[in-house]
């Protein structure tokens, strides 16, 4: 068996599981009862999407598209910190 077709078949086989996980995360992000739940769902979605983007880069034979995953992970952390700062300031000041 050829290595290229083996890797391609494996990544195509792993895609529906990722889609199922993304769908459940998006369901929690849409119907989350409070705002921190939605922040957690978007966080987990983005971290898993970063791993999925690396696998897609292997699937498309495009190694130059790796920095997208690094940038996505870094800026979603920034969103987390903004929300934490908003809630902390809401406790102290007002």
């Amino acid at each position: 068996m050829n290595l290229a077709t083996w890797v391609t078949d494996f990544i195509v086989f792993s895609m529906p599981f990722y889609f199922a996980a993304f769908a459940l995360y998006i369901a929690r992000a849409i119907k989350g009862p409070t705002v921190p739940d939605m922040v957690l769902a978007v966080d987990a979605l983005s971290y898993d999407l970063a791993a999925f983007l690396v696998l897609l880069g292997i699937l498309f034979r495009a190694p130059i598209m790796i920095p997208c995953a690094i940038v996505l992970v870094l800026w979603v952390y920034a969103l987390d910190i903004y929300m934490a700062k908003y809630f902390e300031a809401g406790e102290i000041g007002e």
């Binding site: 970063a50 995953a69 690094i70 987390d80 929300m83 809630f87």
Partner: peptide, 30 residues
């Protein structure tokens, strides 16, 4: 690039989770 992404993600996910958990507990937002 994948290893760098993994290390950054491993550090930042724990840091962000602790930050938002502390903020939500103190602000009673959940």
């Amino acid at each position: 690039g994948a290893v760098v992404t993994a290390i950054i993600e491993y550090v930042l996910a724990g840091a962000g989770t602790h930050a938002i958990a502390r903020a939500v507990y103190r602000a009673k937002a959940a």
